[in-house]
Amino acid sequence: MIEIRNLSKEFQTADGTVEALKNVNLTIQDGDIYGIIGMSGAGKSTLVRCINMLERPTEGQVLIDGQDIGALSTSELRKVRREITMIFQGFNLLMQRTCLKNICFPLELAGVNKADAKKRAMELLEVVGLPDKANAYPAQLSGGQQQRIAIARALATDPKVLLCDEATSALDPKTTHSILELIRDINHRLGISVIMITHQMSVVEEICSRVAILDEGHVVEEGLVSEIFSSPKSKAAKRLVFPEGAEEILLETKGERRIRVVFSGAVASREPLIAKMAMEEHIAASILGASTRSIGDKAYGNMLLGINGDDDTVQRAMNYLRSIPDVLVEEVTDNA
């Protein structure tokens, strides 16, 4: 369990003090995939860097299984860092080492002997699905493959927690999807807790169970992903949940029910889907806002639908949409 208690972080800059984090309190249970989402500059990276003390908090504590890691000596902290490993937006692979040697890197740091390290690295290459890339150099790999190697490297020391700072932000939607699948798989199979930092809502929706919304250094909302996305309360949450511009539409459409549809690789493009629902279920839905992208024949992104009708109609519409693989559906209520 990770407990973040009253965490604040200030930076002294030439233009004065920047308060990057203000009294943040979060609890992340073992085995969770926990999302931390916020706009650029919200303090997400600072928060994640405080979790492994790459950044020293100005105030507050980070407890890992009850142990205050801010109070550890330098050498104890180095040991703890093997248990809270990190992957990054830019992958940060060692460019002059082969993939195999990259995965061996944290093991070398920990003093594991060469033969054992190599064996473990080969196993991990299997886990991330790139057993044939052992002797390739990172520059010879695609972004998605590089991130897989980075994940393998992060897993080498058998961590309890995997910190992901915008791990998929440099990747296209399809690759993002496959990396998220891998992370979910790792979470399930190895029981590693995952903290996902992102500004992409679709990432949180796809794999997180809980989410905290960070806005200007504050946690403005925290809870189950399904709850937050179906009834966002704070302004920051609404801004993230509704596709661009939908907020205004929302205000005007009183009486209409709204459904959020999230595509994570569904084999569908949006017009036929709505048209098909109209034909097969006789439910008319209007698209209030959408930000979807099709890659090949697969759709990624989200869409806000407006439906005029009673509970039954809405329920049928949701059931219909839910029957499509890789589509998430939630009703959105505006109870702010």
Partner: peptide, 15 residues
């Protein structure tokens, strides 16, 4: 040398 790579090493407990 990319400072992010140095940070990566620090995050993995390198001295």
């Amino acid at each position: 040398v990319n400072p992010n790579i140095i940070e990566m090493a620090q995050s993995m407990g390198a001295s």
